[in-house]
């Protein structure tokens, strides 16, 4: 009923059989076909989009006003100078928001009765800054805080803009951290407490490390989003890339600088997004493709 047990191991090094080679050839051919199909479908879709654009009645005037190659090149250096401010705001606001968001999330998970006011304050803070549009937070912080005439408070637009972004983004990030903390399996806490760790030690050494690992992809997404939202500080008058473009547009009503500024933001955010994807994929965070291999 069963083939002879192969008790004597075959010691020769493995050479793929003809059957295995034929399968490899077949799979390679399938891959090539998939590539060609993808290419053809891309060409068709891109061609259609291009045709819709250039055949629109206003295309000629739009091209002159938005896609003037000379203006584009001419504006790049000034815009890059503005973008430098965006990048600094992004890095500082990002780092501060990450730390603050984590602290807020941890504060929310405390249970000591004396800390009730802290927990209540965190809930109110997160509810308010998650619920109010970023633009409104920017306007209120940017124009409201200087009105208080606090001598120790810097009133530069870039500082106030960064502060507003931190308020909003730390609220977002706190909610993500909280989801991560709640997703840590109760058995992990039980095991730590069983070893005699206190509640605080358990939070710091067991829960938070696992929580952070759970939510890294979501955190990185928010941080990438902050990169482009750093452009919102222009409404307070900070001279970032968008403000530079705006000043130029007001002069001659040629909108090309806006397009150039958008291009510069993409130059930063697209590689950033790809880097985040690659990082997540390497850590096996892309689902079954990343860990188990795809099932045919």
């Amino acid at each position: 009923m069963v083939a002879e047990p192969n008790a004597v191991p075959d010691q020769r090094p493995w050479q793929p059989s003809e059957k295995a080679l034929a399968r490899t050839v077949y799979r390679a051919r399938r891959r090539r076909r998939s590539f060609l199909v993808a290419l053809a479908s891309t060409v068709v879709v891109a061609g259609l989009a291009w045709w819709v654009l250039v055949s629109s009645p206003g295309w000629e005037r739009t091209r002159e006003a938005f896609f003037d190659p000379a203006r584009f090149v001419e504006m790049l250096p000034a815009l890059a100078g503005g973008l430098w401010l965006n990048l600094r705001v992004w890095v500082i606001a990002g780092l501060v928001s990450l730390v603050l968001g984590l602290l807020l999330a941890i504060a929310r998970t405390t249970t000591a009765p004396a800390l009730f006011p802290l927990r209540a304050a965190v809930v109110v803070f997160v509810d308010v800054f998650r619920g109010v549009p970023v633009l409104l937070v920017l306007l209120l912080v940017g124009f409201g805080l200087p009105a208080l005439r606090l001598s120790w408070l810097p009133v530069q637009a870039a500082f106030l803009g960064t502060l507003a972004l931190v308020l909003t983004y730390s609220a977002y990030l706190a909610e993500i951290f909280r989801a991560g903390i709640e997703a840590v399996h109760p058995a992990q806490v039980a095991a730590a407490r069983a070893l005699g760790l206190t509640r605080a030690q358990t939070t710091r050494r067991i829960v938070v490390p696992q929580a952070v690992r759970n939510v890294v992809p979501a955190l990185l997404n928010i941080v990438v989003a902050l990169q482009k939202d750093s452009g919102l500080i222009s409404i307070l008058g900070a001279v970032d890339a968008i403000r530079v473009a705006q000043i130029s547009v007001t002069g001659d009503y040629n909108f090309t600088p806006y397009v150039a500024a958008g291009f510069l933001f993409l130059v930063v955010s697209i590689p950033l997004t790809r880097a985040v994807d690659a990082y997540n994929a390497r850590r096996g965070w892309r689902g079954t493709r990343g860990v188990g291999g795809a099932i045919r």
């Binding site: 493995w14 793929p16 059989s17 059957k19 295995a20 399968r23 077949y26 799979r27 399938r30 291999g293 099932i295 045919r296």
Partner: peptide, 25 residues
């Protein structure tokens, strides 16, 4: 159950080699 691809050899179900990638898994 074709949840893993094999490197070599054959898996015949009623005489048909289901390890071949051109079989409808």
């Amino acid at each position: 159950d074709l949840l893993e691809d094999i490197d070599d050899g054959s898996i015949q179900l009623r005489g048909v080699d289901i390890a071949d990638p051109w079989v409808d898994a």
